[in-house]
Nucleic acid binder design. Structure first.
Lengths: 247, 247
DNA sequence: CGCGAGTTTGACCTGCCTCAACTAAAGTGG
DNA sequence: CCACTTTAGTTGAGGCAGGTCAAACTCGCG
């Protein structure tokens, strides 16, 4: 329950997510307005940020760390329905209660706004509303892509899909071409991965071992993954958009 | 490929989806603007309305009929990622190419707008942008609820979930209390149901037979379903939000 | 050192898939 | 009007991917 306030007061201009979050399109004036109503909150890994069904009285952006959206059935089966990375938005303007739990997967810092003032501000500044629509449409696409993963992919493909996704944005791709190996740390436990992929943690573990044996990935400890050939990993994922650089 | 134009020109005021579609919040003036750029298109059951990857040069609302959003892997595995019912919106302002196929499941009529003029109009009329955000947030919630179905539910629960969803809005619930039986027609073939649920059509067929044998549902022919006790069906779905009326 | 959280691995089991045969209803055309 | 095909759905038999249960291993930490 302890909340740690690591960030005292950061100027929006210097904010690491300035150009990707809801505020991305804001001009200097709009930024001032936001700056007036924002406040930071920190959560420790494992803490629940919002409980499903609870009243939500704030919205906000993930500044650093990772959170997950989780749905749970009465008998305890759980399904992660989204992964929130820095710059992702939490909460629903115009909606009172949360439809799922939001849990801090790692230590996390959020830039929050009380819902009411934010909604008012949104009415006044179309830039924010517009950006939020864009972000929501992106999330919808991501959710639908994940439906294909959950509904039709094999366990091995599921693991490969998750690794590709994490690799794609966690390791800053782009500067290096195709061949140089990509290295990153898994931000999720095996259990969390299982919850995301609709598998059991045993199956996750087995498939990771299998991918390692087949040298699709290399492991350093339990969490550090390196991918010698991104193309092969994406083939395993069944995505096979031909990587772009294979053509 | 034949397109049938059934609707010559319908006044927006008389439109059956007037109060649920993107235009729901529009005032008379805004409605006039929309009326100026709208046009109707009809598609026969089975026609593909938009191909994945294609340039989208229009957006629009489903007026009548049902369409489905479908993703396909190279080896042919397919997953339906959304069901579009009357008043649902198709297309992405600010996005060029479609991320998935949109297929007419039944004969369907759409109210379309060329994308460019619509986007301009959206910039000028916040009501539309706001409504679109609300609808997109709703779709996102629906997609995430479906992720739980795909990732964690058994075949029987999946079928029950699908039937509940169709029952909930297809048969106009609300006027009748809990006990009077709900009757509706399945708008989907067994195969389409399988694609939606991440199952095979054989499993769908078997589970429907099983639900019938257990008298959770009754069948009249292959498509007409009646649900004697909605509460029991929802229990089978594992949703068990206790139906609301059980409390 | 001993504990516990996270992970791996093994052995067995089962729910769903696969393949295949069959039925029902609805055209189609001679 | 009846054989023939087509399309949608049902049902059965058998196999396998992934779940379940259980044991052991690793590693950081008090």
């Amino acid at each position: 329950m302890t909340q740690i306030f690591k960030i005292d007061h950061t100027n929006c201009e210097d904010c690491p997510i300035r150009h990707r979050a809801v505020c991305a399109n804001c001009d200097v004036h709009e930024l001032e307005l936001l700056e007036g109503i924002k406040y930071y909150r920190s959560f420790e890994a494992g803490q629940t940020i919002i409980w499903s069904g609870d009243q939500m009285n704030f919205v906000g952006s993930v500044v650093s760390g990772i959170a997950s959206l989780t749905q749970t059935m009465e008998d305890g089966r759980t399904q992660m329905v989204g992964l929130l990375l820095p710059s992702d938005f939490v909460g629903r303007p115009g909606r009172d209660s949360a439809p799922y739990d939001v849990v801090a997967t790692t230590d996390i810092v959020m830039c929050c706004f009380r819902k009411k003032p934010f909604e008012e501000l949104m009415g006044a500044t179309p830039h924010i509303a517009h950006r939020l629509l864009q972000m929501t449409l992106d999330e919808l696409d991501a959710a639908r892509e994940w439906m294909l993963v959950l509904g039709r992919k094999t366990a091995r493909e599921k693991i490969a899909s998750l690794l590709s996704i994490i690799a794609r944005r966690d390791a800053s791709i782009g500067q290096n071409g195709s061949s140089s190996p990509i290295v990153f740390d898994l931000p999720l436990t095996r259990e969390a991965m299982a919850d995301y992929l609709g598998l059991t943690l045993e199956t996750v573990s087995r498939q990771i071992s299998a991918l390692k044996k087949d040298e699709i990935i290399l492991l350093e400890g339990k969490r550090r993954v390196s991918v010698p050939d991104m193309g092969r990993l994406m083939e395993e994922a069944g995505d096979d958009s031909d990587g772009g650089y294979l053509v």
